[in-house]
């Protein structure tokens, strides 16, 4: 479904990603593990078109999307819930969600249905729907960010560290929700530092260090890998 082939990304003259090869298949939940600054967000920003690859190819459903503008990539079906959430802080939760469905703006009935699904998934957002998104707690804002991404009905959902800064109980709930989203048919690429929780729900994973993908494999293989255990699980 999504395929990065030898993708290299530069910030000015420094190289942020070195020939990265990564793949997400239809229906999969793939985790991208790595420390802060390893390049997880750079990969995500490149897939979403916020950065242009200096070399290599980004393919989505058979089309080469490297170099497309971000809005075109969203229309193609890749939607990102970014690090730092990037909500519209002065707008109500409902308005944030409505704008999430911007590419479906002509389909009023569809938007109403999506909103119903979202409120079922995150009941708290229904209670807070009239409040400015910026006034919510960190965990609730994270829910708005994920919900806003879901409103676009993505084929592939990119989640960049959805657990960052959340209380442990909320993290657990968040991962359950992500698992459910995936079960309901959306392919997911999940970037995480919280390797233990992420590997519980993922089918496959990649490990990135200093802009290089150093390891890839099925969940079991990564869980048993000595290097991963030491570096990311702490066992």
């Amino acid at each position: 479904m999504l395929k990065l082939i030898d993708v290299t990304v530069k910030y000015g003259s420094s190289i942020a990603l070195h020939s990265v090869n990564l793949e997400v298949n239809e229906g999969e939940l793939v985790v991208l593990l790595g420390a802060n600054g390893a390049g997880k967000s750079t990969i995500f920003r490149t897939i979403s078109g916020l950065l242009k690859p200096a070399a290599g190819e980004v393919k989505f459903m058979g089309q080469s999307i490297g170099g497309w503008s971000p809005d075109r990539i969203v229309k193609a079906g890749i939607v990102q819930c970014p690090e730092g959430r990037k909500l519209f802080p002065e707008m109500s939760v409902l308005k944030n969600l409505t704008l999430g469905a911007y590419i479906h703006r002509k389909d009023k009935a569809g938007i109403t249905r999506s909103l119903e699904n979202i409120y079922e998934l995150f009941p708290i957002l229904y209670e807070k729907r009239e409040q400015p998104a910026g006034s919510l707690s960190g965990g609730q804002q994270q829910m708005v960010a994920i919900a806003r991404a879901l409103m676009a009905k993505p084929k592939l959902l990119l989640l960049d560290e959805p657990s960052v800064g959340l209380a442990p109980l909320v993290v657990e709930q968040m991962f359950k929700t992500i698992e459910k989203i995936n079960r309901d048919g959306t392919s997911v690429l999940l970037a995480e530092q919280n390797a233990f929780a992420a590997l519980q729900i993922a089918q496959r994973g990649y490990v990135i260090e200093n802009g290089h993908l150093v390891l890839e494999g099925a969940r079991e293989m990564l869980c048993d890998n000595e290097q991963v255990r030491r570096a990311y699980i702490g066992a």
Partner: peptide
């Protein structure tokens, strides 16, 4: 308003800058 409040956020919901 979306673009004024968060430029990248606006791009990521598919708004054409």
């Amino acid at each position: 308003e979306a673009m004024a409040q968060n430029r990248e956020g606006a791009f990521l919901v598919g708004i054409n800058a």
